[in-house]
Design a protein around this nucleic acid. Structure first.
Lengths: 205, 205
DNA sequence: GCAGAAAGTGAGGAATCCCTCATGTTTGTG
DNA sequence: CACAAACATGAGGGATTCCTCACTTTCTGC
């Protein structure tokens, strides 16, 4: 049951294709936000990017690979933000830390709606879900790493699971908070309550 | 922003079509579990049901309507179970009540994997998501109703939101717990911890 | 038993998508 | 400078899916 990870069939080495590769991803992201994953086609991406379809297929076997790549890009960005936060914030008050980070994530999803579109896309088919699960687990590992010095009492394995649950719940509630096309900030408040209660309970256990 | 609800174009009144209607739904559910929503086609449903394609289109405009109908069926079943539970269990210990009900839901998702397939399907496109959101909100209203006598201190509006969050988180974590095609019971344990902590925190606030 | 409503049927036109592949061009390197 | 590797291109074959619509059959109520 090794998850087949969807990767671009080829990554550019030369500058010229590098630009095309990146441009395709930018256009793909816009299109995804605009039409949703179902109506998202490779042909339309190539056409909007004003690149021949053959060029797109040089890099991406199909649309699943494209959205997985977009998801990976977003996850990298989240991991970087997480690292920044972890460095900048006095590490003792980890509850405040998490709450702020959740606010930050929510702000990102609002300011850049394509993040949600990408997340929804990768969740929507078995193949992309499997790839996204790996990406999500790596992210969770990062979260566990940040949490480690702050919750020394928690066993390693337990922390791993908690981090995975946290990541999953945060994404799922972020999604929930944007139902009907606009932000519902109460949902974010509840998310913070939920996460806070969960972590406090774990600490006292 | 009134959500367009996907409904069958016609519901049977006569017995003969009633049977066909139900049979189509049964077959559709099997197919959905087998191939996933993307590869799920009306033609294949009709073919497996050994009914002409025209008959299917008598009832269902397209595949989105079919999965929304399946989702509705499942939601009705959950509401009934919820009512049963609410009646059978001594109502004082509502935490135990929720924990048991979550176990029950998990058991259902394990014993009937098509439930997850249906849930995933309705989550995967904008149109079905909107319809499913309505169904989910109705379910949440039911949960709020059950919770009401048990948490008299909580304001009505707050309880409504909490119920919606609960329902959303439970489904999302049920889904999480079945990653990779098999149950991960730790995830269910964490779900119960999460929900318990959330509710306790709300009670003490 | 009859009229009108409900239900049943399936061939087929229209519309996409997918993605390869044969051929030509550019770039990097020894 | 020459050769290999990387890159670029886009026409088109193959495969699906969608879903209507004109016509027939069955049922139901009076």
């Amino acid at each position: 049951m090794t998850a087949e990870i969807l990767e671009p069939r080829r990554r550019p080495t030369q500058e010229r294709s590098h630009k095309k590769f990146d441009h395709l991803l930018i256009v793909a992201r816009e299109l995804l936000l605009e039409v949703g994953f179902e109506s998202f086609t490779c042909e339309e991406v190539a056409s909007r990017a004003e690149l021949p379809i053959g060029t797109l297929y040089q890099f991406f076997q199909n649309k699943y690979v494209i959205v997985c790549e977009l998801d990976r890009v977003d996850a990298v960005s989240v991991r970087m933000e997480l690292a920044n936060f972890a460095e900048a914030i006095p590490s003792l008050d980890w509850l405040k830390f998490l709450n702020r980070f959740i606010d930050h994530m929510a702000a990102m999803w609002v300011s850049d709606p394509s993040r949600r579109a990408v997340w929804l896309a990768v969740q929507s088919t078995p193949a992309t879900r499997a790839t996204a699960a790996v990406t999500e687990r790596e992210l969770a590992a990062g979260v566990a790493h940040v949490l480690a010095p702050l919750t020394p009492g928690t066993p390693r394995e337990r922390r791993r699971i908690m981090a995975e649950v946290l990541v999953h719940v945060v994404y799922s509630m972020l999604n929930f908070s944007i139902r009907d096309g606009q932000e519902h900030s109460e949902a974010i408040i509840e998310l913070k309550r939920l996460v806070t209660a969960y972590l406090l309970a774990a600490e006292h256990a």
